[in-house]
């Protein structure tokens, strides 16, 4: 087992997917590209295993699972097992050496933010897609809370669905290729997505930006009609369609909630033109780096000045209309209407 199990995002890149999980590796790749991401650090899969070994939780889980064996094929047993295993993990304290290292990193984050107990998000970062591994804690403040939530993220790898998945795939029960990302909360003025290709036509000469006030969830989920900006890659000219944005997603003491957008903001575009141009510029840069059209998530930080306020949380290859595939996909969907 390598010595190091904790990394700044700046130390990571896409090749570290198996080490720290997709989310952390992606954030690392973005910083490597010179994109601003919320500052933070990653605890690797090794960190999880170190915790499991040093606290004895790994042995306890193994014993428990062996005692159950075949019974785990039943859903009620999976529910029970999930509760039991999470209980084992959450009953352990972070080993003191690990605790010190995590605290040291968190203190550095506080220093960089210029305030004590800076609020952070503690997110799971799976190396493989596994359903039910989506535990995220927002607005986490202070050393003790950070370590506690980290342990809970590890525990969350044992939801009923995740256990059923392991049983089905014949995976080892106590293993969980899961990393954890600790990153500074962004006080989001607005957020959204940018695609460096028009998904409807496959037009690569344009960039499409969509955004709404508050956090990006409302745009990603497609529940609300966001503002839309189409930017010409060549000349930078853009046209914008401003929607009446009645609702937005905001941080709350625990998690997020949907709130009303104040009247005077509903019909105002959520992006300033310089912010839009900056988003487009960086998206273009990412596209030429990855040599593929990109689908990226951005956030504008309320507390920072331009251009430091343009932050990135995700970049992946964009899906867009390639006529042949689209037609086959539609044919597939059409065949399903005969099954209802």
């Amino acid at each position: 087992m390598p010595e190091q199990w904790i990394y700044w995002f700046e130390e990571l890149g896409s090749e570290h997917n198996d080490l720290v999980g997709k989310k952390c590796a992606n954030l690392g790749e973005l910083t490597r590209l010179g994109l601003r991401v919320p500052p933070g650090f990653a605890v690797s899969v090794d960190g999880y295993e170190k915790f499991m070994a040093e606290t004895g939780a790994g042995d306890e889980i193994r014993r428990y699972v062996q005692s159950k064996r075949d019974l785990l094929k039943h859903v009620d047993q999976q529910v029970e097992a999930g509760r039991e295993i999470r209980g084992i993990i959450e009953s352990k304290n972070m080993p003191s050496e690990m605790q010190e290292e995590i605290h040291r990193r968190y203190e550095i984050l506080c220093e960089r933010a210029g305030r004590p107990d800076v609020p952070v998000a503690v997110r799971s970062s799976g190396a493989v897609s596994m359903p039910g591994q989506m535990e995220t804690f927002l607005n986490v403040k202070g050393n003790d809370d950070v370590t506690e939530k980290m342990i809970q993220v590890w525990g969350s790898a044992f939801t009923t669905r995740a256990i059923a998945f392991r049983v089905e795939k014949g995976m080892e029960m106590e293993k969980a290729p899961i990393g954890v990302a600790v990153l500074k909360m962004v006080n989001a003025k607005c957020a959204g997505v940018v695609l460096t290709v028009l998904p409807t036509t496959g037009d690569m000469t344009k960039i499409i930006v969509e955004g709404n006030w508050g956090l990006g969830e409302s745009v990603v989920s497609g529940e609300m009609t966001p503002d839309q900006f189409i930017v010409d890659k060549e000349c930078g000219e853009f046209e914008c369609t401003v929607s009446t944005k009645k609702k937005m997603v905001c941080q709350h003491t625990f998690g997020t909630r949907v709130v009303q957008v104040p009247k005077d903001m509903q019909c105002r575009p959520c992006l300033e033109s310089e912010e839009l141009q900056e988003i487009a510029r960086i998206a273009k840069q990412a596209e030429s780096h990855f040599k593929l059209p990109q689908d990226m998530e951005w956030v504008i930080d309320e507390d920072l000045g331009f251009p430091e306020n343009v932050l990135w949380v995700q970049a992946r290859p964009a899906k867009y209309s390639k006529k042949e595939n689209e037609a086959e996909y539609l044919a597939e969907l059409m065949s399903r209407i005969f099954k209802m």
Binding site: V193, T200, I208, E210, G222, T241, S243, K319, S321, L333
Partner: peptide, 18 residues
């Protein structure tokens, strides 16, 4: 425009074709 706006941007390609 309104309907396309309600569809997640990544799904809009085939949706518009449909």
């Amino acid at each position: 425009k309104e309907i396309l706006g309600k569809v997640p941007v990544q799904q809009r390609g085939w949706f518009e074709q449909l």
